[in-house]
Nucleic acid binder design. Sequence first.
DNA 1: CTGTCAAGACACAACGTCTCGTCTTGTTGT
DNA 2: ACAACAAGACGAGACGTTGTGTCTTGACAG
Lengths: 192, 192
Amino acid sequence: MTPPNPDRRSERARRAILDAALELCQEQPFAGVTMEGIAKRAGVGKQTIYRWWPSKAAILLEAITDRGTGTLDFPDTGDIVADLRSQMSEVVRAFNDPMFAAYNRGLIAAAQSDPEIAAGIVKTIIEPRVDLCIERLEKAQQAGAVRRDLDPRDIVELLYAPLYYRLLLHTRPVTPDQVDTILKLSFTGIEA
Amino acid sequence: MTPPNPDRRSERARRAILDAALELCQEQPFAGVTMEGIAKRAGVGKQTIYRWWPSKAAILLEAITDRGTGTLDFPDTGDIVADLRSQMSEVVRAFNDPMFAAYNRGLIAAAQSDPEIAAGIVKTIIEPRVDLCIERLEKAQQAGAVRRDLDPRDIVELLYAPLYYRLLLHTRPVTPDQVDTILKLSFTGIEA
DNA sequence: CTGTCAAGACACAACGTCTCGTCTTGTTGT
DNA sequence: ACAACAAGACGAGACGTTGTGTCTTGACAG
């Protein structure tokens, strides 16, 4: 009935819930994690979870953004290709970390039937990183290393989409080699 | 105990189940479809479903491949860019069909926690289409329209991944414009 | 003293297994 | 060829189990 009062919220319970959710996701596929399991592990009443979160995906999303990978920066050595390679390789490394891959796959799967989660993923995970990459690409455009008549947002998509494609469609493993391939194809073009 | 005998399987029940599954997926998100609901709609015992399929995703996968889009061909007018544009636009149209988009999203979401479904999607949906595109690209390479030092499989990924990226990450809507953008970027390259 | 907390009871829904009695299908005996 | 038969898939639904989301209780903290 009456909405909960955030001022009186227990920070201890909140952390316990986020920690428990992350732990359980490491031990089993995201689909197998339950609200009851999280409550049990966290030593918390179910009501306390339902009071603050609408779904387990929402918990995981907050847990991940809370332990924000920290710095979140984009290298700038002056060599755009080298900078992209190092940043994209970071993503490859993350996708090959079983835990991180599980988080991503689980969240994106949940997003397919939950628009709020989809919006949350874009806003808190994707967009900040895309924006950094766009900034770097704009500098490269001004430096004359990248064509100026292209929308940096489209370039980001062209570069990173193939990584997500393999992660989610399970066609081929995501490897460091793929980064080199993507960069070669997208920079010089496929036209003869 | 004893495995079921496919020779004695009722084709009527099989079709009723596939039809019911498709119907229900059109009426609600895939996550809301249940085995019991399918059985009810199909006028079928639950055991009959569990005897032949391991999960609802497996049913949907078979239902889709059964109503195979039929022809499944890749145009060849001699103009590789025009051919790619028309075929990719077909994918865009499919992704914008609410029903088809729901199927795809639901299946791919299920694939994130079910390796068999993932393998099934790749084998029966993705791969045949990728192979056709590869064939067409190889012709274009021989005709001198596309660089010969590139693996056609990588090119297919570069072209189609951005479509799936938007479909699954929900960043921007999948539009016909996107096809033009992808073709422009990937053919001429982003390097200045 | 008001509202969150931990704990768990509660009704509900779907799961996957099972048990019926019926119907279909392929085999066998005449 | 054709009936009688056995094997097994069928529709229906009961069953125990599990997770859902809400509600109740008493303790405790702001």
